[in-house]
Design a protein around this nucleic acid. Structure first.
Lengths: 208, 208
DNA sequence: ATTTTTTAGTGAAAAAAATCACAAAAATAC
DNA sequence: GTATTTTTGTGATTTTTTTCACTAAAAAAT
């Protein structure tokens, strides 16, 4: 089983490839990618070799086919319907966020408990949470984004897991416990910022 | 120099400690924390030992003093003034987000180029980007959050770095290059979600 | 007072991840 | 046609991170 960090790097390579393609590159070498992503060339090649992704000696990798290959590995060749739970600050921002669409990730609905938030006719409808179970089953939703307050998050996860969701991106600042076959990734904005603060402070101290 | 993951774990321990405290715990054992955070008890103790954080044999750790200790390590004992650049979806959500305040992180201003976004009298003012350099210097801002489109991000980073910002949390989906004494942490929402998708797909395949 | 139990702290060991370094292949140069 | 250059692919090595396992201390029980 491959490492989370390795998969994140694959996403980054893909990202870099799109930019290199936009710049007119038809082929790239491992050190171009390494440079674009901030890793070593050996790391790039090692990552690729784990998935049997091959290039051409002295010829590097063809940008288009490498993108295609990475998309298949990352599961982007099929449609990924995603729902958001929580139409607060974060949930709303994610609904409006254009980045997902660009990457072929489709947010198909949002759910909330507050009737004021409902907008059933919108492009991405905001629906009552009580309908979520049926919605997940009818639409075969496999991925959910939890953007509710921490106090509600575990309950939401339980509903998602029971309804058949297999992967969750959790923005609530709390560790959620779900069944083994449901992957949970956490994005904790406080911790990310705290991390920056720590390293800034540490650097300042060591300088003196 | 300690590891980024280790520091993230410290943040998680602190987080868990607050919750345990709210539940009435006065002291905790390494395995309580381990359980709350999803690591092993040995990992907890090892992390602490790296920073000289000690408890009591058979007595565990006192919740209050452990929180205090972690806050000092994480640099939360002094004020952390932070600015956001970009008053779009993400930037606005972050401005409204209550999580930072709870953690003693103060968002003191936001900057944008679009005059429609300006609101100089608001609680967290949205100011013209052209004023950012002076603002950073006058307020001794050390930390910034980049929430502008990828195309503008490198330019914003350059301005921040020149003005004296030492740490950046970057939401733009692009790798930024800054001076060595400026720490850059990236939050790439697409990649986080892509990661979930990958592991969901992988799990489904291995089951068959 | 002594024994038992529990849990921290930490070197040693194991596992995981990253880097090195080099053979082999392909393109180019001569 | 041969030599040279460049770059991949990967086994071996190194480094990093995590886990193990045991000592020692403190509390509780006898």
């Amino acid at each position: 089983m491959v490492n989370r960090n390795c998969i994140i790097r694959l996403s980054r390579y893909k990202n870099a490839l799109f930019r290199l393609k936009a710049l007119g590159f038809m082929k790239v070498f491992s050190d171009n990618l390494a440079d674009a992503v901030g890793v070593t060339a050996a790391q790039v090649r090692k990552d690729f070799s784990l998935f049997g992704v091959t290039g051409n000696k002295k010829g590097g990798y063809l940008v288009d086919s490498l993108i295609e290959r990475l998309n298949i590995i990352l599961g982007k060749d099929s449609v990924n319907n995603v729902i958001i739970i929580g139409a607060g600050n974060i949930g709303t921002a994610l609904m409006k966020y254009k980045g997902f669409e660009k990457e072929g990730i489709k947010i198909i609905a949002c759910f909330d408990i507050d009737p004021i938030k409902f907008s059933k006719k919108a492009d991405i409808p905001v629906l009552p949470l009580e309908n979520i179970k049926d919605f997940i089953k009818n639409n075969e939703v496999k991925i959910g984004i939890i953007a509710v307050p921490d106090i509600a998050a575990q309950n939401v996860l339980d509903i998602l897991a029971v309804s058949g969701v297999k992967g969750v991106l959790n923005f609530a600042p709390i560790r959620l416990k779900g069944p083994d076959d449901c992957i949970i990734n956490n994005v904790n904005l406080e911790h990310e910022l705290e991390n920056v603060i720590y390293f800034v402070n540490t650097q300042e101290k060591t300088k003196q």
